[in-house]
Design a protein around this nucleic acid. Structure first.
Lengths: 214, 214, 214, 214
DNA sequence: AATGAATGAGAGTTCATTCAT
DNA sequence: GATGAATGAACTCTCATTCAT
């Protein structure tokens, strides 16, 4: 499985952006509170308290609360997600999965782990999407590019082998995404319970294979 | 297609609750603004302005802004959705659809229309779910009961006919719901463009039939 | 004992002022609420509810809440208290009390009963005095006139008989009033318990006699 | 005379509570306005203006208007009054007044000065007592304890000397208090004129001595 | 760079008062 | 006259943001 963990990636991007210890703490506290109570109900006072810094410090790097949100979401979209996608796609190519069943199993298992590992960010994302539809647009645009440029090659290979229905890659991706989210979203939004990824993977793969085989 | 339209149903429940013209305007303005900018960013001053009433009137019937939200969501869950579900299931039984393909076609088309007709409420619902997970629980509980008590009979009939894979009704419902939402949510959250329901129905049905036939 | 009861007197003054049933109810409800929670915290909505009338009716006779207060306090000062004082002084002259001890006993007992009977009004009065010092001025002025014009005659009679110290009537009245209020005020302001008037009278008289005898 | 002045005592308790200059200004402005127009009619906006601070500052230390009131009254009851009482009783014992006439003269003069020095606080106290009867209870309880534990010793000494009537200390205190308040309250509530303490003391002492000698 | 007291615009809410019915 | 829905000014309180230290 891809070892991607957004917090680790955050730490990497931090280095690039010259974030001090204190500023990182602010960012992490924001992440926690935004995920817990939502952007609007998370006060900068509470963020400062959770981060263990003064109220002034919250604004030393990020001039407004809005910038604080973007400081979390923009790298998420611009750097973290692509980085994760790259890692994921490389992994996918390295594995050199001979059959579509292996491919779909790998994807399902890997993406489920990925989302469950980064619940917090996803929750903020889902919440903020309602208010900032541009977010969703940015995301879908990026994913589309990704899918078109690299995933479609892989899919077409399976189509050529006669293992995958000959629909447009976008359409196939949408089904995969939908079914995965159908399993993941209730868990991300509602509960703190862990998910039995192995069992769920089996179920999802069984269905997707039926729906998507040639 | 089921003719359910939540605004119509709202108007009915209004009569029951003795809502005056002005109070209904307040409710509609709230609905609009909550859907547009979210509960937290919709100020009661703006609601009053949009409704064309004074600020005091906003609080004459619903004593707090929170009650205003509940006045929209509670009937949505307690009255409107069940009513819609009943209507839907009755329609489903009346149609007496002989084959699973007809059944799944009807459902897809009907639910797509239903959601697109009631975008505003669904958007609020999706947004508030992030903050009030109880909402999602209330909803899923209601839907589960519904599915178990009435939908499973219908599904089992098709299973007995050898037209539907013999999985638990809950599992089958989840796939149907996921795929439908995969088509609907981006549209509800992001754009104001209409959806080509006929074309989309065809696509969805094609996939679901493959995934779910016996 | 003088049978004065302000509610009865109110009813009399009502006739003079052409107050309808509804308006009287409003006045009584105001009296009750003003005494219970104070003028500022008694809302006109609550007054209407307690009076069993609509919110509009509260303002049909008394155009403002302030007028409502005055409608209670002004007759209290202008009509009820003088009327009560007249009644009291007539009673005092009728009794034709030969000795100062009888005189002081009668006064103590009678005024204690009077205040305890009209707790509600007194409580409002005491509360409002803090804000409207004019009230106290109106009251003291009236009482001074009263004392000078009629009570001083009586007191001087006892002074001539050699039963009462030869201080100015004002000074003597002040001591009597102070001691009485020292017994009454805590009860009026704080508790709903009845007062053992007989026992208290004995105590007060014993002290006042010592302090005021010739 | 005891030199107690509540403003000075306030300043002391301030140091203990780490009140900044601005917060002290807020407290003093509250004191002034509460005394002038009463708690309910003193708006936090006006308090801010009088204190020369922003509206936000009014709530920076004391989170609600109610807490602002308590910040004035609670130390008044819990710290200032007991401290004043201690100081007063110590003074009383130090003076070692040989005769009851000296004792009663000292008390009268001292307490009159004390109340006149702290008019503002007493006015708030009297006003709020009407609404918060618990205040009066707290006060009387404290005073009773004080009188029972320390004042009664002193009184009993005079009783043993044959200079003071043999009534219960509580009863004696009540007469003293009543007569003092009879002189002080009209002045505290109504006017801003100074009181001729020397002359008034003579009058009061003359009366109390007659009423309370053995 | 960090602090946290201070700011003030704006939030939700109350309520005396009005007026069409 | 009585009603009660509607009004809107004024209220208490919050919070993102600033800035002297």
């Amino acid at each position: 499985m891809t070892e991607t963990d957004l917090t680790t990636l955050f730490t990497k991007t931090r280095a690039q952006n010259n974030l001090s210890d204190r500023q990182l703490k602010v960012l992490q506290a924001s992440l926690t509170l935004f995920a817990k109570v939502g952007y609007d109900r998370a006060s900068t006072t509470d963020i400062a308290q959770l981060a263990g810094v003064s109220e002034g410090t919250v604004f030393s790097r990020f001039k407004t609360k809005e910038q604080l949100l973007r400081a979390i979401l923009t790298p998420f979209i611009d750097q973290v997600l692509p980085l994760a996608a790259d890692e994921f796609l490389e992994q996918l190519q390295m594995e050199n999965l001979p059959h579509f069943v292996d491919f779909i199993t790998f994807i399902t298992h890997d993406r489920m782990s990925f989302v469950m590992k980064n619940r917090g960010e996803f929750k903020i994302f889902v919440q903020e999407m309602g208010r900032n539809p541009e977010l969703l647009q940015m995301l879908t645009q990026r994913l589309n590019t990704l899918i078109n440029s690299r995933l479609s090659e892989l899919l077409m290979a399976y189509q050529d082998k006669g293992e995958l229905v000959k629909w447009a890659p976008m359409r196939i991706s949408r089904y995969i995404t939908s079914v995965l989210l159908g399993y993941l979203l209730p868990n991300v939004l509602m509960s703190d319970e862990p998910l039995d990824i192995e069992a769920q993977t089996q179920e999802v793969v069984e269905f997707l294979l039926r729906g998507l085989h040639a």
